[in-house]
Design a protein around this nucleic acid. Structure first.
Lengths: 143, 143
DNA sequence: GTATTTGCAAATCGTTTGCGGCTTG
DNA sequence: CAAGCCGCAAACGATTTGCAAATAC
């Protein structure tokens, strides 16, 4: 269970690529980015690392409204539960806590007798930077 | 815009099938159900109707944690924004309102200067009925 | 030296679309 | 009769997996 994986060039590359961006990116995005940067890496490898990161808490993963899975680097592994305010235009995201929401979720769950509860919550919008640039930005479409 | 579509046997069948279930179902589920009931219908037709229902507000659509799109009949078209407490085991769902959450979402959005905000929020758990039955129910897996 | 990781290509999976044929109004 | 549906099969895009070659420790 204490699977400590080997450190490989590709693994590092994927992490760096993800860390270099401050927004949520799809696996395909990261892959394209890496190739563009001249890296010799396979798409499957990117997927594998991204998923591994998510499991280890090194990255957050969320589904955008279109159903694609997007990942975001999280620095030190942190298990604390949180949500995001994601820019639909550039993918940038603010990490936000929602004590109120967590409480609310628990309340209604209890009210209806539901157990083993968990929830999904993401807020999407257009960040200030993208608004001023106009509705035609394109950095990293997340919606 | 006021596109009134024709009433067809299949359209009715899909609506009935969806209405017959009180939980969220995937298109494939509904399709299988219909075929099982002896209906002669195509998968694409099911998809087309389900999407149409969603657009008309006759059905709610949400993505389950696995990324699949699931639909649920909503009776009279209602545009009011709401969320769901969905049973991960049988798909049954309670329609819940989250004034507090809406407010919270708006607050943080404003705080960070985000505009054109919207959010996704669903709560998943195990309903009382499924708990008493044991962790082996199977009605309509939603997660 | 050997277990792990990589990468390619093929396989899945859910969903969408093209299009001739059938229905509805 | 004409505008819309239907359904099948092919197309699709994202993600997964099989497996032999490459690599890390």
């Amino acid at each position: 269970m204490t699977t400590a994986q080997r450190s490989t060039v590709q693994g590092t590359a994927v992490r760096d690529a993800l860390a270099a961006q401050d927004g949520f990116r799809s696996a395909q995005d990261v892959y394209a980015q890496l190739r563009a940067d001249g890296h010799k890496i396979g798409l499957s490898t990117v997927y594998r690392h991204l998923q591994a990161f998510t499991e280890r808490g090194v990255a957050d993963a969320i589904h955008n409204p279109d159903g694609e899975t997007t990942y975001r680097f999280c620095g030190e592994a942190h298990t604390s539960h949180h949500h995001h305010l994601v820019c639909r235009s550039c993918g940038r995201a603010e990490e936000v806590e929602g004590r109120a929401v967590e409480r609310w979720a628990e309340e209604i769950a209890t009210k209806y007798g539901f157990t083993a509860v968990n929830h999904t919550l993401e807020v999407f919008g257009i960040c200030p930077a993208c608004v001023s640039v106009g509705p035609e930005s394109d950095a990293a479409p997340v919606g």
